[in-house]
Each structure stands twice: as structure tokens, then as C-alpha cells.
Amino acid sequence: MSEQAADDISGTPAGGPRRLRPRPAVAETAAMRALLIATAIGFLGLFVVLPLVAVFVEALRRGIGHYLETFADPDTQAAIRLTLTVAAIAVPLNLVFGLSAAWAVAKFDFPGKSLLITLIDIPFSVSPVVSGLVFVLLFGAQGVLGPWLAAHDLQIVFAVPGIVLATVFVTVPYVARELIPLMQEQGVSEEEAALTLGASGLRTFLTVTLPNVKWALLYGVLLCNARAMGEFGAVSVVSGHVRGLTNTMPLHVEILYNEYNFVAAFAVASILAGLALVTLVAKSLLEWRYGDALGRSRLY
């Protein structure tokens, strides 16, 4: 290999390179960079920003008066109440579950640990419709427990308990998923230190573990809450769509939409979209401010 070959590789004539300031060794050209940024912005703009904007534009299409009228409707109010109720039950339950599971998985070694972690993830990979269906098959009139429930005059599916169950099912993983990797990373040395200093187990948990995971916990609760309030498929299957009784906000959106009452549908949708935005802002703030205090792997 000779000097000649080196010049060939550079692809510039002798004397040529002197006038050029080469760009940094490992970066794209300015044009390539601009193209990539434009592509990313275009893609996200088209698929994410536009639908979000559309929700608010459609909701306000006939003016603020029409928009507000939607919320005077008792059925809408009932839907909002039910959604809040369901979230108020599902989120605390999954919070307690998440803390328990994370404590057991992250602080102890036992056989079948990775199986348990996989099981916690199941609701993420099951179709929402299937998540609802399982409760119909369990508690429905033709379900396994159907006859027994009917004999005792208890109704679970096509009633509020079914909606709560389906919502709890789909939101099981959120808190646990945030806590487990973080608590595994943190290990047990701080807790052991607290114990050697005479703290009780509960006190150790409250004064050592909890402060270490509080931001990840908040993060998980936020995501859990957003999903709980917005779940559609699973809830749709178990709800029975009784207006004013078993209609959550997302289901109410569907009913209004199918009745061609678009302004009202988008008005209710705008509340849910607002909730999504608040969640995103809080999530971004948490990541930005306390990124180090959150776990590393966040896929969902």
C-alpha cells in the first residue's frame, strides 16, 4: 500500500484537502442532520401532535358554549364520577401490590423470581379485549361462577365491580415495573444499616426504602392512573354500556360519537386528553429533575 492509495481513499485531489475544513470525525453533514431532524419532527407531528390538536379543535368547533353544555349533561357527569371512582380504587390497590412485589423481588432471593417478574408483565401483553373477556368468562351468566353469583343476587360483570376488576387487571404492572429495577439497583445495604442501628422493619421501610423510591413510585402511580382512567377495550367488554350507571368517560366518548354527537364526544375526550397532557408534563418533569432517582428500564 502506498501514499497514492491513501490519497485515493480520501477521494480529494492533491492540494484539494487544504482548502476544506473537514467536519468532525464522527458526525453527519449539516444537510443530513437537518433531514433527520425534519423527518423526526414530521413523523411525530403527523402521528402524535395532529391527533392531539384535533381533539381540542373538534371539541371547540361550535364554540365554548356548546363545549361546556356537554358537562351539564347528567350522563356525562355520571361518567366522570365513575371514572374517578374506578381510578380511586384501582390505583391504591396496585400501589400496595407494586410495593409488596417490589420488596419481595428486589430485596430477597428466591426460586422462581424471574417467573414472578414475567407474570407481573402479563397484562401488558394481553389484548385489552381479552382482559375484559376473562372476567366475563369467570363471572358472566354463563361463566364459571355465574350460577353461584346469580343465586346470591350478586352482579359483577355489566356492573361497576366488573369495570373495577378489568381496570385493576390492565394496570397491575405499572407501579411494580417502575419500582423493581430501581430497588434491585439500590440493593439491601441501606436497609441493613438501618436494622443494625435498631430500626424496626416497618420503620426501615418508611424512613429508608420509601424515600429512596419516592419519585419512581410517583412516576408509576401517574402512569397507572392515566391508564386506569383511559382504559377502553377491557372496560368496554365488561361494562354493558348502561348510560349513567356503567359508563366510564372513554365509553361515554364512544356512545356520544356513535350518536353523531361529535362536539360532545370530543369535549369529553378533551378532558381525557388534558389528563394525558398533565401526565406527560409531570412525567417529563420527573425524568428531567429526578432522572437519576428513577429506574433505568422504562418501556411502557
Binding site: 501514499e3 477521494g11 484537502p17 473537514p22
Partner: peptide, 25 residues
């Protein structure tokens, strides 16, 4: 050639390599 000097020159043998890109050095 992984960094560019703010001023000055680099020679390889008799050749001025200052503006030769890293791939060709």
C-alpha cells in the same frame, strides 16, 4: 484527525495532514 486544531499544523512525513480527514490519514 479525530479533533481539529484551532490553529497550527500537523505533518505526516513532508505532507501537511492538518485538513486530511481521519479516514484518509
Amino acid at each position: 484527525g479525530l479533533e481539529q486544531p484551532t490553529a497550527g499544523r500537523v505533518f505526516f512525513g513532508g505532507e501537511d495532514a492538518t485538513f486530511v480527514p481521519v479516514q484518509a490519514r
